[in-house]
């Protein structure tokens, strides 16, 4: 028994070893006017981990991931992403780190005026060392990964909701990011497509060994993808654990998410 506990502690220590931590937030705070959205958030996210963030609408989940990519700047506390302190980065360094982070928006955020091919080529504009052929091969591979090879010359308006989400995912994956941020990836999709997207998230994580932070209300998605879950309540972390631990929580409020 003692040996087993020792193994568990060693494994936990290894996981939380500074080299394995890709995102670290300490006492993070963010307010909009008088509305305090994030209140003293402390999170460590490890390499290759799938972290699911749960919480009611307006509890600060989206603000949290937008802070991580520099779309919103936090007011207090420290935020270290891939060993870089986000407070100390100039715009060039911020853009460099953004290329290592993929962000799948709730709506997909596809560029309406561009074709599927142009949407995927857009993040590669600055890759001057890549030939046109290499870029085309990369685009075709990304589309193949999400099962949308046939749509390459279509406009986003011609695609269904699920296809748009998958295309959004392909676009963020084309730069092979180390961290993936998903903002409600299954919202507005039917059960089957939601399951497909959830499995795709898992597949991506396994294939590219990415660290994923997934914001969702969809418990079936959370069940499929989560290694660890945190629950937000009014800007603070109210609970943390695995899917099973939270499902069997004694806290009625936490349990309400699973019913």
């Amino acid at each position: 028994m003692e040996a087993l506990l020792k193994d568990i502690h060693e494994a936990t220590d290894a996981l939380h070893h500074p080299q394995n931590v890709v995102v670290e937030m300490q006492h993070l705070k963010k307010s909009f006017g008088k509305n305090e959205v994030l209140k003293d958030i402390n999170i460590k996210i490890n390499k290759g981990e799938n972290l699911v963030v749960l919480g009611k609408s307006g509890s600060g989940k989206s603000v949290l991931i937008k802070c991580m990519v520099g779309l919103i700047s936090h007011d207090e506390g420290s935020l270290v992403v891939l060993d870089k302190n986000m407070d100390e980065l100039n715009s060039k360094e911020l853009n460099a780190i953004r290329k290592k982070i993929g962000f799948l928006f709730q709506s997909g955020a596809l560029y309406d005026s561009m074709t599927v091919r142009e949407n995927l080529a857009f993040p590669l504009r600055d890759a001057k060392d890549m030939s046109k052929e290499e870029k085309t091969a990369l685009i075709e591979e990304a589309l193949k990964n999400v099962g949308l090879s046939a749509t390459i010359d279509k406009m986003p308006s011609e695609l269904s909701g699920g296809m748009r989400k998958r295309l959004g995912l392909a676009r963020t994956l084309i730069l092979k990011p180390e961290i993936m941020l998903y903002d409600e990836p299954t919202t507005g999709l039917d059960t089957i497509t939601s399951k497909e997207i959830s499995e795709l998230i898992l597949e991506v994580q396994k294939k590219y060994n990415t660290t994923s932070i997934i914001i969702t209300h969809d418990m079936s998605c959370a069940k499929i993808v989560a290694n660890r879950m945190i629950v937000f309540k009014e800007g603070v972390i109210a609970a943390e654990g695995t899917y099973n631990q939270l499902e069997n929580s004694k806290d009625e409020w936490v349990k309400s998410f699973f019913q």
Binding site: S91, A96, K99, F105, A109, L110, D112, S113, F122
Partner: peptide, 21 residues
């Protein structure tokens, strides 16, 4: 209208997070 639509559908944010100004 084009820019406002890009803004509200998060296309400008998407451009920003892909490292484009």
């Amino acid at each position: 209208a084009e820019l406002a639509s890009m803004k509200v559908t998060e296309q400008i944010d998407a451009m920003e997070v892909s490292g484009t100004n």
